[in-house]
Design a protein around this nucleic acid. Structure first.
Length: 621
RNA sequence: GCACCCGUAGCUCAAUUGGAUAGAGCACGAGCCUACGAAGCUCGGGGUUGCAGGUUCGAGUCCUGCCGGGUGCGCCA
């Protein structure tokens, strides 16, 4: 396959020249020319930054070294780049010839858009969503769900076999408490709504976890507002309810038929709404991805036993703990009464994902508060040697374990988000609001006589409005570095101006409009020569040609924001091009067709990238 | 007490992992629809990158110490 990277031959030539100069193999780390896109267009398209560091090692002057290497590499680069220019302390500025851009664009204009299948034959497991049964999804689940889905799609795009893993909280005491409570009141389990469940959950929490001493201790220890907010939900006089719930849990775990049946109803009610939200959000979350705590219930004791047998875990005050060198905090994997903890489930889940699913990369999209927890769990799994994974081709490798620690969604008071009435802000409420605003916006534009959507049926406008509203929410969440907390602000999340989801959708709609007006079928410009002479054409070409690299980088760093940055850059470049370079009225005909082809390639790249974010692209909006 | 995360323009965020004069969007001000959709484009003001040292050709980025905010830390999940 032809490379779509226009700098590749230049990299190769510079690498060879550096290797000769310092006497190493071209593949050597030291021969890396350190080529980056230029910070400023006046320094060309790319810059090579190797000379300064290299000169320090060899004791020569960086500028002299840069000049020498540039001259040595010049003959090999002549077909691709304008003559090199050495500037500042020893930067080499590189400006591509239009012909090099044209060739690279032609290579990119293929079905795969120049995205290399780097993950072919490899498997990744992505832990996402993580809802709790009987609990309504709140805005925090938005992040675990869409970040996980996007990361999964990005890996799929690169050829990885992807296993989404929805680690439901569907087993253990909290669920037993809800079950117990519902069965003790005259509730018809077949007519339950998630709201009923949610109320029962909160009521159960309330009556079951009264621990005034715990709250006082947390205050005294200076615990943060998250912890206090949780503890404040609890109240006194809990022993009786707790005992009853524990009896229910024992029966459930023993497989009591009636209880298991009712338990399944709770899951069904919960998941119905989860899948509804997933559909609204454009998230792939097939039922096969359900791998909750209950799925691992038979795998807990074997996991514990393995840690005992390998002597990695030790008894301490009756409990079983794993200790780590140089770390005060141990990992508790079994309570003194013999019961497993949530860490135990995570250990069993990792073992399953690596050894049964064959995942050589496991990604957890879980909020940042669990950082330490995953450090411990990952280290424990490495200590016991469960990270060795057999590939399909017979080789083995070490699984890469990643936690994507996203920040919390806070209220305007910078505390965990609550509505005015003190309830959690539900995901559904957010999505409803986003769609309502999207629809309002789309309908307002359609009312204008000059709008391309003028006179369209309301149902179609509604569908477009939903797509716009959802795009706004998702892009706002995914485009920033996910580790940061952010303050929940509806106006910001559903913004339609500037660097937003709708901005990207708008670029696609503009292109669709041009292509439709041109009356050209795809074949009429499929062979047209790409234009790369006007500054705006060059800028668009350079942005487009990063497509494959940007997707690969987003996967390497497990950072959806990398992809968003790239798509935004493409859209900005396109809008600049759109402003400066007429397409339909361009002369001569070859330029018109060439620009149409460039538009079409841009549309495909944006559609591809937005698809990885799970954002729909209306052709009119 | 210990550990980790975060402090960049009025606000929300970048800065390709140590590179050139710290960039975008929002908001504010001035322009651009008789060439394709103005959800757009162009121009402008706005900064002691929390503070103080250090490392070097070069620091928002690395090291040390502070300040401010947040999160977590044995029988919850």
């Amino acid at each position: 396959m032809a490379s779509t990277d226009p700098v590749e031959p230049i990299t190769t030539a510079l690498r060879a020249a550096i290797a000769r100069a310092i006497g190493c193999e071209p593949s050597d780390q030291r021969a890396d020319p350190v080529i980056r896109p230029s910070a400023n267009p006046k320094f060309g398209d790319f810059q090579a930054n190797f000379a300064m560091a290299l000169a320090k090692q060899s004791g020569s002057k960086p500028r002299d070294l840069a000049v020498a290497i540039a001259e040595a590499a010049a003959p090999g680069c002549e077909p691709f780049a304008e003559p090199f220019e050495v500037a500042g302390p020893g930067f080499i500025n590189i400006r591509l010839k239009p012909e090099a851009l044209r060739r690279a664009l032609v290579a990119m204009d293929s079905p795969d858009l120049g995205v290399q299948p780097l993950g072919a034959g490899r498997t990744v497991a992505v832990d996402l969503c993580g809802v709790n049964v009987a609990k309504q999804m709140h805005v925090g689940h938005l992040r675990a769900t869409i970040i996980g889905d996007t990361i999964a799609r990005i890996h799929e795009r690169l050829g990885w076999t992807t296993c989404r893993q929805n680690h439901l909280g569907d087993w253990g005491l909290p669920i037993a408490m809800v079950l117990d409570r519902l069965r003790n009141e005259p509730a018809n389990l077949d007519a339950l709504t998630l709201d009923d469940l949610n109320r029962a959950y909160r009521a159960a929490q309330h009556e079951g976890r009264g621990d005034g001493a715990g709250l006082a201790a947390a205050r005294a220890a200076g615990s943060g507002p998250h912890r206090l907010a949780e503890l404040e939900l609890q109240c006194e006089d809990a022993a009786a309810a707790l005992e009853s719930a524990k009896r229910t849990l024992v029966k459930l775990q023993a497989g009591d038929l009636e209880l298991v049946r009712d338990w399944q109803k709770l899951i069904d009610v919960t998941m119905r709404e989860v899948y509804e939200s997933a559909r609204t959000l454009g998230v792939h979350l097939p039922p096969e991805s359900e791998r909750g705590e209950s799925f691992f219930r038979d795998k807990l004791q074997p996991a514990i036993q393995a840690f005992v047998d390998s002597k990695i875990a030790e008894r301490d005050q009756g409990a079983l703990v794993v200790r780590f060198p140089g770390r005060e905090r141990p990992l508790l994997i079994q309570k003194s009464d013999g019961a497993a903890l949530y860490a135990t489930t995570d250990l069993a889940a990792l073992r399953y994902r690596i050894q049964d699913l064959g995942a050589e990369k496991v990604i957890y999209c879980v909020d940042a508060r669990q950082r330490d927890h995953f450090i411990d769990v990952f280290d424990a799994v490495e200590m016991i040697g469960w990270t060795r994974v057999a590939r399909r081709d017979g080789t083995t490798t070490e699984a890469e374990l990643v936690h994507v620690p996203f920040g919390s969604v806070l209220g305007a008071d910078r505390k965990p988000l609550k509505t005015r009435s003190g309830e959690n802000f539900t995901l559904k409420a957010l999505l409803d609001e986003a769609c309502a605003r999207g629809r309002r916006e789309v309908h307002a534009r359609a009312a204008e006589a000059t709008s391309p959507t003028h006179g369209w049926p309301a149902a179609e406008l509604d569908a477009i409005g939903d797509a716009v509203g959802i795009a706004a929410v998702k892009y706002a969440d995914l485009s920033a570095d996910v580790t940061r907390d952010y303050i929940f602000d509806l106006d910001r999340m559903v913004a339609f101006d500037g660097d937003t989801g709708p901005y990207l959708q708008y670029a696609v709609a503009r292109i669709a409009s041009i292509i439709q007006r041109s009356g050209a079928a795809g074949t009429s410009f499929a062979q047209a020569p790409f234009p790369a002479d006007a500054p705006e054409e060059r800028a668009l070409a350079l942005a487009l040609l990063r497509h494959g690299t940007a997707i690969a980088q987003a996967a390497d760093e497990d950072a959806p924001s990398r992809l968003c940055q790239h798509l935004s850059a493409v859209a900005v470049a396109f809008n600049g091009f759109y402003q400066a370079c007429p397409v339909l009225k361009a002369e001569p005909e070859s330029l018109r067709l060439g620009r149409l082809r460039l538009c079409h390639l841009t549309q495909r790249a944006l559609t591809d990238g937005l698809g990885l974010l799970g954002i729909a692209v209306p052709q009119r909006m």
